[in-house]
C-alpha cells in the first residue's frame, strides 16, 4: 500500500500483466479442486458405507425379518422396466423360495424426483414403502417420510386390486388416498409411483420370483 505513495515508478513497474489474473484464477481452481478431490477420496468409502447401511435399513423396513432367512442386499437381480431403465431388485427368500422382493421406485414431486423403496410379497401385496430421498418443501411435502407422519404406512397390505387400479390416486383426483394440506403434488407423485411399481411387479413376476 505505502509503496504506491512513495514511488509511483515502482508501482507502474509491479503493475501486474493481464495474463497474471488468469494464472491466479487457475491456481485457485487447481488448489481448491485438489482439496475437493482429496476430500472426495477420503470420504468416498465412508459415504458408500453409509449409503449401504441406509440401504440395509430401508430394506429391513419393507422386507420384514420373519419372511426371509437370506440377506436380500446380496441377492439381487436386474430387470429393465417399461422405460428401459434398469432396476435392481432385492429378493427375500425362505427355504430358497422367493417370499418377497424390494426395489426402488421413482415419483415426480413438487421440487424434483422422489426416490422410494417398495417391498412386495410373492402374491403382490405391499409389504411396505419408505422414502429414500426427496427434495420436497420441509414442513409440507416431507410428510411422506415415515418419521414425520404415518401417511406412508397406509399402503402396507394393499395391492393393485385393493383398492382397484383406478382408485390408486389422491382424493383430490377421485382416488382413495389423502393428500396433505397445502401439498397435493407430492402425495400424487408418490401414489403414482407405487401404482407403477406394482405394475412393474405384475409384468415381471416370473423373472423376479424365478430361482436363478
Amino acid at each position: 500500500m505505502n509503496a504506491t505513495h512513495d514511488s509511483p515508478i515502482a508501482s507502474v513497474a509491479v503493475k501486474p500483466k493481464p495474463y497474471i489474473h488468469g494464472v491466479i484464477l487457475f491456481a485457485f481452481c487447481l488448489g481448491f479442486g485438489l482439496v475437493m478431490a482429496l476430500t472426495n477420496d477420503v470420504t468416498l468409502d465412508d459415504i458408500s458405507a453409509r449409503a449401504l447401511e441406509d440401504k440395509q435399513n430401508s430394506l429391513s423396513q419393507v422386507l420384514p425379518d420373519n419372511i426371509h432367512d437370506n440377506n436380500p442386499v446380496l441377492d439381487t437381480v436386474t430387470v429393465k422396466n417399461e422405460e428401459g431403465k434398469e432396476t435392481t431388485v432385492y429378493r427375500a427368500r425362505k427355504d430358497k423360495q422367493v417370499t418377497g422382493v424390494a426395489y426402488e421406485i421413482f415419483g415426480t414431486g413438487y421440487a424434483g424426483e422422489i426416490r422410494l423403496m417398495m417391498g412386495i410379497d410373492a402374491s403382490g401385496k405391499l409389504l411396505g414403502v419408505r422414502v429414500l430421498a426427496h427434495k420436497e418443501t420441509p414442513g409440507l411435502g416431507d410428510k411422506i417420510e415415515a418419521k414425520k407422519s404415518p401417511w406412508i404406512e397406509r399402503f402396507t397390505g394393499l395391492s393393485l386390486g385393493n383398492p382397484s387400479v383406478e382408485r390408486w390416486k389422491v382424493k383430490k383426483d377421485g382416488g382413495d388416498f389423502d393428500q396433505f394440506a397445502g401439498a397435493t403434488i407430492t402425495p400424487r407423485g408418490v401414489v403414482a409411483a407405487i401404482r407403477r411399481g406394482q405394475e412393474f411387479y405384475a409384468a415381471n413376476k416370473d423373472k423376479l420370483t424365478g430361482s436363478n
Binding site: I24, L25, F28, F32, V35, M36, T39, T43, I47, R50
Partner: peptide, 19 residues
Amino acid sequence: VYILIVASMVTLVDLAMNA
C-alpha cells in the same frame, strides 16, 4: 475466486457431513 472459495467450502461441508 470468492465464489470458488464459498463453493469449495460448501462441497467440503457437504461431503464431510455425509461421511
